[in-house]
Design a protein around this nucleic acid. Structure first.
Length: 473
RNA sequence: GCGGGAGUAGCUCAAUUGGUAGAGCAUCAGCCUUCCAAGCUGAGGGUUGCGGGUUCGAGUCUCGUCUCCCGCUCCA
Protein backbone atom coordinates (compact mmCIF):
# COMPACT_ATOMS: atom_id res chain seq x y z
CA UNK A 1 0.00 0.00 0.00
CA UNK A 2 1.47 3.28 -1.10
CA UNK A 3 0.88 6.51 0.74
CA UNK A 4 -1.66 8.92 -0.66
CA UNK A 5 0.96 11.69 -0.43
CA UNK A 6 3.23 9.81 -2.81
CA UNK A 7 0.44 9.45 -5.33
CA UNK A 8 -0.69 13.08 -4.97
CA UNK A 9 2.90 14.16 -5.42
CA UNK A 10 3.17 12.25 -8.70
CA UNK A 11 -0.22 13.58 -9.79
CA UNK A 12 0.95 17.16 -9.29
CA UNK A 13 4.44 16.66 -10.69
CA UNK A 14 3.26 15.12 -13.95
CA UNK A 15 0.25 17.35 -14.47
CA UNK A 16 -2.70 15.19 -13.49
CA UNK A 17 -4.16 17.42 -10.79
CA UNK A 18 -3.44 20.93 -9.54
CA UNK A 19 -4.91 22.80 -6.66
CA UNK A 20 -7.60 25.24 -7.71
CA UNK A 21 -6.58 28.93 -7.81
CA UNK A 22 -3.15 27.90 -6.58
CA UNK A 23 -1.55 31.29 -7.20
CA UNK A 24 -3.98 32.82 -4.70
CA UNK A 25 -3.25 30.23 -2.03
CA UNK A 26 -5.76 27.67 -3.25
CA UNK A 27 -9.42 27.17 -2.47
CA UNK A 28 -10.31 24.56 0.12
CA UNK A 29 -11.13 21.22 -1.43
CA UNK A 30 -11.16 22.41 -5.02
CA UNK A 31 -8.92 20.83 -7.64
CA UNK A 32 -8.14 21.32 -11.31
CA UNK A 33 -7.28 18.58 -13.78
CA UNK A 34 -4.09 19.16 -15.75
CA UNK A 35 -3.16 17.96 -19.24
CA UNK A 36 -2.85 14.29 -18.27
CA UNK A 37 -5.61 14.36 -15.67
CA UNK A 38 -8.18 15.60 -18.14
CA UNK A 39 -7.31 12.82 -20.60
CA UNK A 40 -7.72 10.23 -17.87
CA UNK A 41 -10.98 11.86 -16.81
CA UNK A 42 -12.38 11.89 -20.34
CA UNK A 43 -11.32 8.29 -20.92
CA UNK A 44 -13.02 7.24 -17.71
CA UNK A 45 -16.24 9.04 -18.57
CA UNK A 46 -16.16 7.82 -22.17
CA UNK A 47 -15.74 4.25 -21.03
CA UNK A 48 -18.66 4.60 -18.62
CA UNK A 49 -20.84 6.34 -21.21
CA UNK A 50 -20.28 3.59 -23.76
CA UNK A 51 -20.85 0.84 -21.21
CA UNK A 52 -24.13 2.41 -20.11
CA UNK A 53 -25.66 3.87 -23.26
CA UNK A 54 -24.44 1.63 -26.08
CA UNK A 55 -27.45 -0.59 -25.52
CA UNK A 56 -31.12 -0.64 -26.50
CA UNK A 57 -32.67 0.33 -23.21
CA UNK A 58 -30.63 3.29 -21.95
CA UNK A 59 -30.73 6.87 -23.27
CA UNK A 60 -28.48 9.75 -22.31
CA UNK A 61 -29.23 13.32 -21.31
CA UNK A 62 -27.35 16.35 -20.06
CA UNK A 63 -29.53 18.47 -17.76
CA UNK A 64 -28.73 21.96 -16.51
CA UNK A 65 -27.15 22.52 -13.14
CA UNK A 66 -29.61 25.26 -12.16
CA UNK A 67 -33.11 23.92 -11.78
CA UNK A 68 -36.47 25.26 -10.68
CA UNK A 69 -36.35 25.68 -6.87
CA UNK A 70 -39.46 23.54 -6.47
CA UNK A 71 -37.42 20.57 -7.72
CA UNK A 72 -35.65 20.53 -4.37
CA UNK A 73 -38.88 20.75 -2.42
CA UNK A 74 -40.07 17.65 -4.25
CA UNK A 75 -36.80 15.79 -3.79
CA UNK A 76 -36.70 16.61 -0.09
CA UNK A 77 -33.41 18.50 -0.26
CA UNK A 78 -34.83 21.83 0.87
CA UNK A 79 -35.82 20.22 4.14
CA UNK A 80 -33.10 17.62 4.54
CA UNK A 81 -30.16 19.71 3.44
CA UNK A 82 -30.59 22.70 5.73
CA UNK A 83 -29.98 22.57 9.46
CA UNK A 84 -29.86 25.33 12.10
CA UNK A 85 -26.64 24.66 14.02
CA UNK A 86 -25.44 26.09 17.32
CA UNK A 87 -22.06 25.65 19.03
CA UNK A 88 -21.26 25.66 22.70
CA UNK A 89 -18.03 27.55 23.22
CA UNK A 90 -17.14 25.84 26.50
CA UNK A 91 -17.50 22.24 25.43
CA UNK A 92 -16.78 22.97 21.75
CA UNK A 93 -19.73 20.80 20.90
CA UNK A 94 -22.09 21.39 18.03
CA UNK A 95 -25.82 20.74 18.08
CA UNK A 96 -28.77 21.10 15.85
CA UNK A 97 -30.70 23.94 17.47
CA UNK A 98 -34.10 22.36 16.83
CA UNK A 99 -32.99 19.02 18.28
CA UNK A 100 -31.63 20.77 21.34
CA UNK A 101 -34.95 22.49 21.95
CA UNK A 102 -36.92 19.32 21.36
CA UNK A 103 -34.81 17.42 23.87
CA UNK A 104 -35.48 20.20 26.37
CA UNK A 105 -39.22 19.92 25.75
CA UNK A 106 -39.04 16.17 26.40
CA UNK A 107 -37.23 16.82 29.64
CA UNK A 108 -39.90 19.27 30.74
CA UNK A 109 -42.62 16.75 29.95
CA UNK A 110 -40.92 14.15 32.11
CA UNK A 111 -40.84 16.67 34.91
CA UNK A 112 -44.56 17.17 34.40
CA UNK A 113 -44.07 20.81 33.41
CA UNK A 114 -46.63 20.37 30.68
CA UNK A 115 -47.59 23.99 30.39
CA UNK A 116 -44.01 25.11 29.86
CA UNK A 117 -43.41 22.29 27.39
CA UNK A 118 -46.44 23.28 25.36
CA UNK A 119 -45.35 26.89 25.37
CA UNK A 120 -41.89 26.09 24.03
CA UNK A 121 -43.27 23.65 21.52
CA UNK A 122 -45.53 26.36 20.14
CA UNK A 123 -42.59 28.75 19.94
CA UNK A 124 -40.52 26.10 18.15
CA UNK A 125 -43.27 25.55 15.61
CA UNK A 126 -43.23 29.28 14.85
CA UNK A 127 -39.48 29.46 14.27
CA UNK A 128 -38.66 31.02 10.95
CA UNK A 129 -35.31 32.66 11.39
CA UNK A 130 -32.19 31.32 13.05
CA UNK A 131 -32.48 34.05 15.66
CA UNK A 132 -35.85 32.59 16.67
CA UNK A 133 -34.15 29.36 17.71
CA UNK A 134 -31.53 31.37 19.55
CA UNK A 135 -34.20 33.40 21.36
CA UNK A 136 -35.88 30.22 22.63
CA UNK A 137 -32.61 28.76 23.84
CA UNK A 138 -31.74 31.95 25.71
CA UNK A 139 -35.24 32.64 27.03
CA UNK A 140 -35.75 29.19 28.55
CA UNK A 141 -32.10 28.91 29.57
CA UNK A 142 -31.43 25.70 27.70
CA UNK A 143 -27.98 24.50 28.74
CA UNK A 144 -25.40 22.52 26.85
CA UNK A 145 -25.86 18.85 27.85
CA UNK A 146 -22.08 18.39 27.90
CA UNK A 147 -20.71 21.44 29.65
CA UNK A 148 -23.91 22.56 31.35
CA UNK A 149 -23.20 26.18 30.36
CA UNK A 150 -25.11 28.76 28.37
CA UNK A 151 -22.00 29.76 26.48
CA UNK A 152 -23.68 29.61 23.05
CA UNK A 153 -22.74 31.01 19.68
CA UNK A 154 -25.38 32.45 17.37
CA UNK A 155 -27.52 29.94 15.53
CA UNK A 156 -26.14 29.52 12.05
CA UNK A 157 -27.81 27.86 9.18
CA UNK A 158 -25.83 25.05 7.74
CA UNK A 159 -27.15 24.69 4.25
CA UNK A 160 -25.65 21.86 2.24
CA UNK A 161 -27.00 23.38 -0.96
CA UNK A 162 -25.12 26.19 -2.68
CA UNK A 163 -27.38 29.14 -3.12
CA UNK A 164 -27.25 31.74 -5.87
CA UNK A 165 -29.74 33.98 -7.61
CA UNK A 166 -31.14 34.46 -11.07
CA UNK A 167 -31.31 37.92 -12.59
CA UNK A 168 -29.56 41.13 -11.64
CA UNK A 169 -31.37 41.72 -8.35
CA UNK A 170 -30.75 39.50 -5.39
CA UNK A 171 -33.98 38.92 -3.53
CA UNK A 172 -35.78 35.90 -2.15
CA UNK A 173 -37.91 35.39 -5.23
CA UNK A 174 -34.86 34.89 -7.42
CA UNK A 175 -33.06 32.30 -5.30
CA UNK A 176 -31.91 29.15 -7.06
CA UNK A 177 -29.59 26.34 -6.04
CA UNK A 178 -26.71 24.54 -7.64
CA UNK A 179 -27.97 20.98 -7.85
CA UNK A 180 -26.83 18.81 -4.92
CA UNK A 181 -27.28 15.70 -7.06
CA UNK A 182 -27.67 15.21 -10.78
CA UNK A 183 -30.43 12.61 -10.42
CA UNK A 184 -33.27 15.13 -10.31
CA UNK A 185 -32.38 16.34 -13.80
CA UNK A 186 -33.24 12.83 -14.96
CA UNK A 187 -36.48 12.49 -12.99
CA UNK A 188 -37.96 15.77 -14.22
CA UNK A 189 -37.15 14.68 -17.80
CA UNK A 190 -38.56 11.20 -17.42
CA UNK A 191 -41.55 11.75 -19.71
CA UNK A 192 -39.64 13.85 -22.25
CA UNK A 193 -37.06 11.12 -22.72
CA UNK A 194 -39.48 8.22 -22.73
CA UNK A 195 -41.67 9.83 -25.37
CA UNK A 196 -39.04 11.29 -27.68
CA UNK A 197 -36.82 8.19 -27.57
CA UNK A 198 -39.92 5.93 -27.88
CA UNK A 199 -38.80 3.86 -24.91
CA UNK A 200 -40.91 1.43 -22.95
CA UNK A 201 -40.45 0.49 -19.31
CA UNK A 202 -38.06 -0.98 -18.35
CA UNK A 203 -35.50 1.53 -19.59
CA UNK A 204 -32.86 3.84 -18.16
CA UNK A 205 -31.56 7.39 -18.48
CA UNK A 206 -27.84 8.09 -18.06
CA UNK A 207 -26.11 11.34 -17.30
CA UNK A 208 -22.66 12.65 -16.45
CA UNK A 209 -22.54 16.02 -14.74
CA UNK A 210 -21.45 18.18 -11.87
CA UNK A 211 -23.19 18.55 -8.56
CA UNK A 212 -22.41 20.69 -5.53
CA UNK A 213 -22.64 20.17 -1.79
CA UNK A 214 -21.47 22.67 0.76
CA UNK A 215 -19.82 20.05 2.95
CA UNK A 216 -18.61 21.04 6.41
CA UNK A 217 -15.14 19.95 5.50
CA UNK A 218 -13.38 18.45 2.55
CA UNK A 219 -11.01 15.57 2.85
CA UNK A 220 -8.63 13.14 1.26
CA UNK A 221 -7.62 14.85 -1.98
CA UNK A 222 -10.36 14.30 -4.58
CA UNK A 223 -12.44 12.07 -2.32
CA UNK A 224 -14.62 14.63 -0.62
CA UNK A 225 -14.96 17.92 -2.45
CA UNK A 226 -17.72 20.52 -2.57
CA UNK A 227 -17.87 20.45 -6.33
CA UNK A 228 -17.97 16.97 -7.80
CA UNK A 229 -19.04 15.09 -10.87
CA UNK A 230 -21.39 12.15 -10.96
CA UNK A 231 -21.94 9.53 -13.61
CA UNK A 232 -25.25 7.97 -12.96
CA UNK A 233 -28.12 6.11 -14.48
CA UNK A 234 -31.71 5.83 -13.32
CA UNK A 235 -33.42 2.66 -14.50
CA UNK A 236 -37.22 2.77 -14.57
CA UNK A 237 -38.98 -0.52 -14.05
CA UNK A 238 -42.30 -2.02 -13.05
CA UNK A 239 -42.96 -2.03 -9.27
CA UNK A 240 -42.14 -5.46 -7.93
CA UNK A 241 -39.32 -6.05 -10.40
CA UNK A 242 -36.92 -3.57 -8.80
CA UNK A 243 -34.85 -6.10 -6.88
CA UNK A 244 -34.22 -8.15 -10.04
CA UNK A 245 -32.91 -5.04 -11.73
CA UNK A 246 -31.01 -4.10 -8.60
CA UNK A 247 -29.10 -7.38 -8.80
CA UNK A 248 -28.64 -7.04 -12.54
CA UNK A 249 -27.08 -3.58 -12.26
CA UNK A 250 -24.97 -4.59 -9.28
CA UNK A 251 -23.31 -7.21 -11.41
CA UNK A 252 -22.93 -4.92 -14.42
CA UNK A 253 -21.33 -2.13 -12.42
CA UNK A 254 -18.97 -4.44 -10.56
CA UNK A 255 -17.83 -5.97 -13.82
CA UNK A 256 -17.22 -2.56 -15.40
CA UNK A 257 -14.55 -1.78 -12.80
CA UNK A 258 -13.04 -5.23 -13.21
CA UNK A 259 -12.87 -4.95 -16.98
CA UNK A 260 -10.90 -1.72 -16.61
CA UNK A 261 -8.32 -3.45 -14.48
CA UNK A 262 -9.52 -2.71 -10.96
CA UNK A 263 -8.02 -5.34 -8.69
CA UNK A 264 -10.75 -7.52 -7.11
CA UNK A 265 -9.10 -7.53 -3.68
CA UNK A 266 -9.31 -3.73 -3.67
CA UNK A 267 -13.10 -3.78 -4.09
CA UNK A 268 -15.96 -4.82 -1.84
CA UNK A 269 -19.71 -4.40 -1.37
CA UNK A 270 -21.04 -2.43 1.54
CA UNK A 271 -24.78 -2.74 2.13
CA UNK A 272 -26.52 0.19 3.79
CA UNK A 273 -27.86 -0.60 7.24
CA UNK A 274 -29.78 2.64 7.51
CA UNK A 275 -31.71 3.47 4.37
CA UNK A 276 -32.36 6.99 3.15
CA UNK A 277 -35.96 8.18 3.08
CA UNK A 278 -36.33 7.36 -0.62
CA UNK A 279 -34.74 3.89 -0.72
CA UNK A 280 -35.89 0.34 -0.07
CA UNK A 281 -32.50 -1.23 -0.75
CA UNK A 282 -29.02 0.21 -1.14
CA UNK A 283 -25.45 -0.95 -1.48
CA UNK A 284 -22.11 0.65 -2.30
CA UNK A 285 -19.03 -0.43 -4.17
CA UNK A 286 -16.07 0.50 -2.00
CA UNK A 287 -12.43 0.77 -2.98
CA UNK A 288 -9.52 0.38 -0.62
CA UNK A 289 -7.80 3.75 -0.78
CA UNK A 290 -4.55 4.44 1.09
CA UNK A 291 -6.69 6.12 3.77
CA UNK A 292 -9.10 3.18 4.04
CA UNK A 293 -12.22 1.87 2.32
CA UNK A 294 -14.36 4.49 0.63
CA UNK A 295 -17.46 4.53 -1.55
CA UNK A 296 -16.91 4.93 -5.27
CA UNK A 297 -20.37 3.99 -6.49
CA UNK A 298 -23.81 3.39 -5.03
CA UNK A 299 -26.56 1.10 -6.32
CA UNK A 300 -29.86 2.26 -4.84
CA UNK A 301 -33.41 1.10 -5.23
CA UNK A 302 -35.23 4.44 -5.00
CA UNK A 303 -38.79 3.10 -5.30
CA UNK A 304 -41.22 5.58 -6.86
CA UNK A 305 -40.33 8.25 -4.30
CA UNK A 306 -38.93 10.79 -6.76
CA UNK A 307 -41.40 10.38 -9.61
CA UNK A 308 -44.32 10.31 -7.22
CA UNK A 309 -43.09 13.39 -5.41
CA UNK A 310 -42.61 15.28 -8.68
CA UNK A 311 -46.11 14.23 -9.69
CA UNK A 312 -47.48 15.60 -6.42
CA UNK A 313 -45.54 18.87 -6.65
CA UNK A 314 -45.96 19.57 -10.34
CA UNK A 315 -49.31 17.91 -10.89
CA UNK A 316 -47.86 16.41 -14.08
CA UNK A 317 -48.51 12.73 -14.53
CA UNK A 318 -45.42 10.58 -14.13
CA UNK A 319 -47.16 7.40 -15.07
CA UNK A 320 -46.21 4.75 -17.53
CA UNK A 321 -49.09 3.37 -19.54
CA UNK A 322 -48.69 -0.13 -20.87
CA UNK A 323 -51.23 -0.22 -23.70
CA UNK A 324 -50.68 -3.87 -24.51
CA UNK A 325 -51.27 -5.26 -21.03
CA UNK A 326 -53.69 -2.49 -20.07
CA UNK A 327 -51.57 -1.50 -17.12
CA UNK A 328 -50.55 1.85 -15.67
CA UNK A 329 -48.17 2.66 -12.84
CA UNK A 330 -45.52 5.08 -11.57
CA UNK A 331 -42.27 3.24 -12.30
CA UNK A 332 -39.84 2.19 -9.61
CA UNK A 333 -36.24 3.32 -10.02
CA UNK A 334 -32.92 1.55 -9.63
CA UNK A 335 -30.03 3.99 -9.57
CA UNK A 336 -26.35 3.46 -10.25
CA UNK A 337 -24.44 6.52 -9.14
CA UNK A 338 -20.66 6.80 -9.32
CA UNK A 339 -18.33 9.63 -8.39
CA UNK A 340 -16.16 10.57 -11.35
CA UNK A 341 -13.24 11.98 -9.33
CA UNK A 342 -13.52 9.19 -6.81
CA UNK A 343 -13.37 6.70 -9.64
CA UNK A 344 -10.41 8.49 -11.17
CA UNK A 345 -8.65 8.52 -7.82
CA UNK A 346 -9.39 4.84 -7.31
CA UNK A 347 -8.00 3.94 -10.73
CA UNK A 348 -4.96 6.10 -10.01
CA UNK A 349 -4.30 4.36 -6.69
CA UNK A 350 -5.05 1.00 -8.31
CA UNK A 351 -2.49 1.69 -11.06
CA UNK A 352 0.35 3.08 -8.98
CA UNK A 353 3.28 0.80 -8.38
CA UNK A 354 6.90 1.14 -7.46
CA UNK A 355 8.50 -1.87 -9.08
CA UNK A 356 11.93 -3.12 -8.13
CA UNK A 357 14.06 -3.76 -11.18
CA UNK A 358 17.66 -4.90 -11.53
CA UNK A 359 19.76 -2.79 -13.88
CA UNK A 360 22.54 -4.13 -16.08
CA UNK A 361 25.12 -3.56 -13.37
CA UNK A 362 23.09 -5.80 -11.07
CA UNK A 363 22.00 -2.86 -8.99
CA UNK A 364 18.47 -2.71 -7.67
CA UNK A 365 16.44 0.37 -8.54
CA UNK A 366 12.85 1.51 -8.45
CA UNK A 367 10.65 1.89 -11.50
CA UNK A 368 7.57 4.01 -10.85
CA UNK A 369 4.80 2.86 -13.12
CA UNK A 370 1.11 3.58 -13.50
CA UNK A 371 -0.51 0.40 -14.74
CA UNK A 372 -3.59 1.94 -16.33
CA UNK A 373 -5.77 -0.10 -18.61
CA UNK A 374 -4.92 1.06 -22.18
CA UNK A 375 -8.45 2.46 -22.52
CA UNK A 376 -7.89 4.73 -19.53
CA UNK A 377 -4.25 5.73 -20.00
CA UNK A 378 -3.92 9.49 -20.69
CA UNK A 379 -1.33 8.81 -23.39
CA UNK A 380 -1.74 5.64 -25.43
CA UNK A 381 1.49 5.58 -27.36
CA UNK A 382 4.84 7.36 -27.38
CA UNK A 383 7.18 7.42 -30.39
CA UNK A 384 10.97 7.73 -30.10
CA UNK A 385 13.91 7.70 -32.45
CA UNK A 386 16.45 5.43 -30.75
CA UNK A 387 19.04 8.18 -31.15
CA UNK A 388 18.51 11.71 -32.31
CA UNK A 389 20.54 11.35 -35.55
CA UNK A 390 21.32 9.02 -38.45
CA UNK A 391 17.97 9.70 -40.12
CA UNK A 392 15.96 8.23 -37.26
CA UNK A 393 14.09 11.41 -36.25
CA UNK A 394 13.16 11.96 -39.89
CA UNK A 395 11.67 8.47 -39.94
CA UNK A 396 10.10 8.56 -36.48
CA UNK A 397 8.31 11.91 -36.63
CA UNK A 398 5.95 11.03 -39.52
CA UNK A 399 5.04 7.78 -37.73
CA UNK A 400 4.12 9.85 -34.70
CA UNK A 401 2.04 12.30 -36.73
CA UNK A 402 0.16 9.42 -38.27
CA UNK A 403 -0.55 7.70 -34.95
CA UNK A 404 -1.68 11.03 -33.53
CA UNK A 405 -4.67 10.93 -35.87
CA UNK A 406 -5.98 7.91 -33.97
CA UNK A 407 -4.42 7.90 -30.51
CA UNK A 408 -3.31 10.33 -27.85
CA UNK A 409 0.37 10.19 -28.69
CA UNK A 410 3.63 11.77 -27.57
CA UNK A 411 6.96 12.24 -29.31
CA UNK A 412 10.21 12.46 -27.37
CA UNK A 413 13.80 12.78 -28.52
CA UNK A 414 15.33 14.05 -25.32
CA UNK A 415 17.76 11.94 -23.28
CA UNK A 416 18.75 8.31 -23.42
CA UNK A 417 16.17 5.79 -24.59
CA UNK A 418 15.82 4.16 -21.17
CA UNK A 419 15.08 7.51 -19.62
CA UNK A 420 12.31 8.13 -22.12
CA UNK A 421 10.76 4.73 -21.38
CA UNK A 422 10.74 5.57 -17.69
CA UNK A 423 9.09 8.92 -18.27
CA UNK A 424 6.26 7.15 -20.06
CA UNK A 425 6.04 4.46 -17.35
CA UNK A 426 5.46 7.17 -14.80
CA UNK A 427 2.44 8.56 -16.64
CA UNK A 428 1.13 5.11 -17.52
CA UNK A 429 1.63 5.05 -21.29
CA UNK A 430 1.06 1.41 -22.27
CA UNK A 431 3.02 1.38 -25.54
CA UNK A 432 6.30 2.89 -26.73
CA UNK A 433 7.27 2.73 -30.38
CA UNK A 434 10.98 3.03 -31.16
CA UNK A 435 12.55 3.67 -34.54
CA UNK A 436 16.04 2.13 -34.81
CA UNK A 437 18.61 1.27 -37.44
CA UNK A 438 16.62 -1.68 -38.67
CA UNK A 439 13.56 0.51 -39.27
CA UNK A 440 15.45 2.31 -42.04
CA UNK A 441 16.10 -1.02 -43.75
CA UNK A 442 12.86 -3.00 -43.39
CA UNK A 443 10.23 -0.48 -42.16
CA UNK A 444 9.62 -2.24 -38.84
CA UNK A 445 9.66 -0.67 -35.38
CA UNK A 446 9.80 -2.07 -31.89
CA UNK A 447 6.72 -1.80 -29.67
CA UNK A 448 7.62 -1.93 -26.02
CA UNK A 449 4.92 -2.77 -23.51
CA UNK A 450 4.83 -0.89 -20.26
CA UNK A 451 4.01 -3.77 -17.94
CA UNK A 452 6.33 -6.45 -19.26
CA UNK A 453 8.98 -4.14 -20.75
CA UNK A 454 9.11 -6.69 -23.56
CA UNK A 455 9.51 -5.58 -27.14
CA UNK A 456 7.97 -6.87 -30.30
CA UNK A 457 8.90 -5.96 -33.84
CA UNK A 458 5.98 -4.69 -35.88
CA UNK A 459 5.76 -3.45 -39.43
CA UNK A 460 4.95 0.26 -39.62
CA UNK A 461 2.06 -0.52 -41.97
CA UNK A 462 0.42 -2.72 -39.36
CA UNK A 463 1.15 -0.51 -36.37
CA UNK A 464 -2.31 1.03 -36.02
CA UNK A 465 -4.11 -2.31 -36.24
CA UNK A 466 -1.62 -3.80 -33.80
CA UNK A 467 -2.28 -1.07 -31.23
CA UNK A 468 -6.06 -1.19 -31.64
CA UNK A 469 -5.98 -4.96 -31.07
CA UNK A 470 -3.87 -4.55 -27.95
CA UNK A 471 -6.22 -1.89 -26.56
CA UNK A 472 -9.36 -3.93 -26.90
CA UNK A 473 -7.80 -7.22 -25.84
C1' G B 1 -16.06 23.70 13.35
C1' C B 2 -12.34 21.81 17.32
C1' G B 3 -7.30 19.77 18.55
C1' G B 4 -2.37 18.61 16.63
C1' G B 5 1.45 19.02 12.65
C1' A B 6 3.29 21.42 8.24
C1' G B 7 4.13 25.41 4.33
C1' U B 8 11.51 28.16 1.34
C1' A B 9 12.46 27.07 -6.96
C1' G B 10 8.08 22.17 -10.45
C1' C B 11 10.04 18.15 -6.58
C1' U B 12 13.32 16.80 -2.10
C1' C B 13 15.57 19.81 1.26
C1' A B 14 19.71 23.61 3.23
C1' A B 15 20.44 28.64 5.25
C1' U B 16 24.92 30.10 12.67
C1' U B 17 22.28 34.00 18.52
C1' G B 18 17.82 37.91 13.34
C1' G B 19 22.86 39.88 8.90
C1' U B 20 23.59 39.19 0.71
C1' A B 21 18.12 32.96 -0.03
C1' G B 22 21.52 28.02 -1.82
C1' A B 23 22.11 22.70 -3.56
C1' G B 24 20.56 18.19 -5.94
C1' C B 25 16.90 16.42 -9.14
C1' A B 26 13.40 18.18 -12.83
C1' U B 27 12.68 21.76 -17.13
C1' C B 28 14.79 24.27 -21.56
C1' A B 29 19.09 24.85 -25.31
C1' G B 30 23.43 22.43 -27.14
C1' C B 31 26.70 18.11 -26.98
C1' C B 32 26.94 12.87 -25.97
C1' U B 33 23.94 8.43 -26.26
C1' U B 34 22.31 2.20 -31.21
C1' C B 35 17.06 -0.37 -26.27
C1' C B 36 15.44 0.44 -20.27
C1' A B 37 16.52 7.14 -16.44
C1' A B 38 19.75 10.41 -13.38
C1' G B 39 27.23 11.81 -18.63
C1' C B 40 29.09 17.04 -20.14
C1' U B 41 28.30 22.59 -20.88
C1' G B 42 25.07 26.54 -20.30
C1' A B 43 20.32 28.98 -19.17
C1' G B 44 15.66 30.11 -17.02
C1' G B 45 13.03 29.69 -12.47
C1' G B 46 12.02 32.72 -5.44
C1' U B 47 8.78 39.95 -2.93
C1' U B 48 10.54 32.23 1.70
C1' G B 49 1.78 30.56 1.28
C1' C B 50 -0.52 35.62 2.00
C1' G B 51 -1.05 40.24 5.08
C1' G B 52 0.24 43.27 9.29
C1' G B 53 3.77 44.22 13.61
C1' U B 54 8.73 44.54 16.22
C1' U B 55 13.77 45.82 14.25
C1' C B 56 18.95 49.62 11.19
C1' G B 57 17.85 44.72 9.13
C1' A B 58 12.89 39.10 9.32
C1' G B 59 12.97 32.65 5.85
C1' U B 60 14.26 33.09 11.24
C1' C B 61 10.68 36.72 16.49
C1' U B 62 5.26 38.10 16.88
C1' C B 63 -0.12 38.54 15.46
C1' G B 64 -3.75 37.44 11.91
C1' U B 65 -5.18 34.73 7.69
C1' C B 66 -5.11 30.91 3.73
C1' U B 67 -3.93 25.99 2.22
C1' C B 68 -2.49 20.86 3.00
C1' C B 69 -1.96 16.40 6.28
C1' C B 70 -3.61 13.40 10.84
C1' G B 71 -7.51 12.75 14.60
C1' C B 72 -12.56 14.19 16.26
C1' U B 73 -17.18 16.11 14.33
C1' C B 74 -20.01 15.94 9.82
C1' C B 75 -21.22 13.05 5.40
C1' A B 76 -30.41 13.70 3.70
Amino acid sequence: MYKLDTIISLAKRRGFVFQSSEIYGGLNGCWDYGPLGVELLLNLKDSWWKAMTFRDDVEGIDASILMHPRTWEASGHTKQFSDPMIDNKTSKSRHRADNLIEEFIEKMRKKKKTELADEIEAALANCEENSDYHDIIMKYEIKDPISGTMDWTEVRNFNLMFKTFVGPVEDTGSTVFLRPESAQGIFVNFKNVMETARQKVPFGIAQIGKAFRNEINTKNFLFRTREFEQMEMQYFCKPGTEFEWFDYWKERRWNWYQELGMRPEKMRWKDHDKLAHYANKATDIEFEFPFGWGEIEGIHSRTDFDLRSHFEHSNKKMEYVDTVNKDRFIPYVVETSGGVSRGLMAFLCNAYEEEKVIDEKGKEEVRTVLRFHPKLAPVTVAVFPLVNKDGMPEKAHPIYKDLQQHFKAQYDTSGAIGRRYRRQDEIGTPFCVTVDGQTLEDNTVTVRERDTMQQERVSVDKLKTYLFDKMTK
